[in-house]
Design a protein around this nucleic acid. Structure first.
Length: 462
RNA sequence: GGUCGGAUGGCCGAGAGGCGAGGCUCAGGACUGCAAAUCCUGCUACACGGGUUCAAAUCCCGUUCCGACCUCCA
């Protein structure tokens, strides 16, 4: 186990020690959403996974610049606009907001910068001019601009494929392409579609071009980490590499890809309906619990979704949360945030969150035993290690982000429950257990859980 | 056809040659007036067939099954 961060790089499929290009700084580009539908938990898992990476880098004292783009123009958005009878930009903005809400509900930190594709057309045109001048792209005259894959010295290095092994696209248009595998940097405008003027005609950007242009605009010719979902390796990331390296840029140093959330062993698809949309699941569990679930599996492992597993994960989280709340009550002060050596070692090992979770469980056990033994020193140490770990995972229950919205009836509730508990306590003192149990049962029915502890009775509302 | 992953106990989910990860569930115990919470104990698993090794869930060969990508999917 190294003291330094080890990360798996898709490019060589090996785990190696992370070395930033500039000491103390890290630049990350994460492929964000194409805003054409509400986010499901697969989309948001990617956000959570890379948010944990980001928080860990920050905790490791790196100055992190985190870019996550928004693809706000593409075929599906245009189709959706027709279907929903809205302007394309209204569709994009509507779903962009849905993604923002989902990220916020799960405590995914806002990116340092969050560029929109449509805000970077001039950078894309400059990149195309550069690629054409270097002999790697061509404009056949129909308004499209293509990348000439046969001109590349290397291609498909991430997915380890051979150009000639690719199945030819069914709809390959050979009237303008030099090779069926050449891909569009720019698409000529069709009647009625939005378009931007270029030296080769009006049109709109291809998907791959925008990421190369935006990564370059915010992170420069070379940066540390490029992330995204596993399914982006080909073609999206291969094509980003092709564009950027053909432009003479070094581009990303490390490629990281998160695995999917699956259902019944299969990758999520829209055919599964709306039940796995973030907003739907937030009706069943709290944001902090959904995040705990999505973050709990290793980022490179498939996460097989089930409502049972989600519930189980929530039960696990509530136990840890309950410990921290009890610890804060007993210590009478705010819990600190520290990083245990075991947690650090696990996170440095390619973000081994499941191993880190095992450490958190051990710490909770130690802390609970310290409560029983009335050892406040050990309790404080365990609690701050637990809170520090949860904060890295974005699941600190004391984080104001997760604060339940202001309840102006809180004092009233507190007073009423206290009143009932006083009655119960006096009943117990005179050994009238029938009366005391009646009070407890009544409170239980109202959703209030009673615990008799060494320090008196405590209650929690669920 | 090419490329890449996966199969671990009742369930979820780590590990990647040797010390029973952890969680959830369940059973028993301690504590409690009874509970709740907590702690302790128990439930000894690695798809199949070969092989390498003192030692294999882990390495090698083969097989079965499941999945992903192959031109706009996180």
């Amino acid at each position: 186990m190294s003291a330094d961060l080890q990360l798996f790089n898709t490019a060589d499929r090996k785990v190696s020690t992370f070395k930033p290009l500039t000491p103390g700084k890290v630049g990350i580009y994460l492929c964000g959403a194409t805003v054409q539908a509400p986010p499901h938990i697969g989309h948001i898992r990617s956000g959570v996974n890379f948010d944990i990476l980001r928080r860990w880098l920050i905790a490791s004292e790196y100055d992190v610049t985190f870019i996550r783009n928004v693809t706000d123009i593409d075929d599906k958005i245009l189709h959706k606009a027709v279907h929903e009878e809205m302007p394309w930009w209204a569709v994009a903005m509507k779903y962009e907001r849905a993604f923002c809400d989902a990220y916020a509900a799960l405590n995914v930190l806002p990116p340092t910068y969050e560029p929109l594709a449509t805000g970077h057309i001039s950078q894309m045109i400059e990149l195309m001019e550069l690629l054409i001048s270097r002999g790697h792209a061509y404009a056949p005259g129909n308004g499209d601009v293509y990348l000439d894959v046969r001109s590349l010295s290397s291609y498909l290095t991430l997915s380890n494929q051979k150009l000639d092994d690719l199945q030819p696209a069914e709809d390959a248009d050979l009237t303008h392409k030099k090779d069926p595998r050449d891909f569009a940097l720019w698409k000529a405008a069709k009647p009625g579609d939005p378009s931007w003027p270029t030296p080769w005609g009006a049109g709109r950007p291809g998907w791959h071009l925008e990421c190369s242009a935006m990564a370059h605009a915010y992170l420069g010719e070379a940066f540390d980490i490029h992330g995204g979902g596993l399914d982006l390796i080909f073609p999206h990331h291969e094509n980003e590499i092709a564009q950027s390296q053909s432009a003479g840029w070094q581009f990303a140093n490390i490629w990281m890809h998160n695995a999917w959330v699956t259902t019944s062993g299969e990758k999520m698809s829209k055919s599964l309906g709306n039940s796995l949309q973030v907003q739907e699941l937030l009706k069943k569990v709290r944001g902090i619990e959904l995040r705990w679930y999505l973050g709990s599996a290793h980022y490179r492992s498939m996460l097989e979704f089930s409502f049972e597993a989600l519930e189980e994960s929530s039960v696990n989280f509530r136990r840890i949360e309950g410990f921290l709340i009890r610890a804060a009550e007993i210590l009478g002060s705010e819990i600190g945030k520290t990083i245990s050596p075991e947690f650090k070692a696990a996170m440095n090992d390619d973000l081994a969150v499941p191993t880190a979770l095992a450490n958190i469980s051990e710490l909770v056990k130690t802390g609970n035993s310290a409560i029983t033994a009335n050892d406040k020193k050990e309790l404080a140490a365990a609690a701050s290690d637990v809170r520090g770990a949860l904060a890295i995972l974005g699941c600190d229950p004391f984080d104001p982000v997760f604060a339940t919205s202001g309840n102006d009836k809180k004092e009233l509730l507190d007073g009423l429950v206290s009143l009932a508990l006083e009655q119960r306590t006096s009943a117990r003192e005179r050994k009238d257990f029938a009366a005391s149990d009646l009070i407890r049962d009544s409170l239980t029915k109202l959703g209030i859980t009673i615990e008799d502890t060494a320090n008196g009775t405590r209650w929690t509302a669920n």
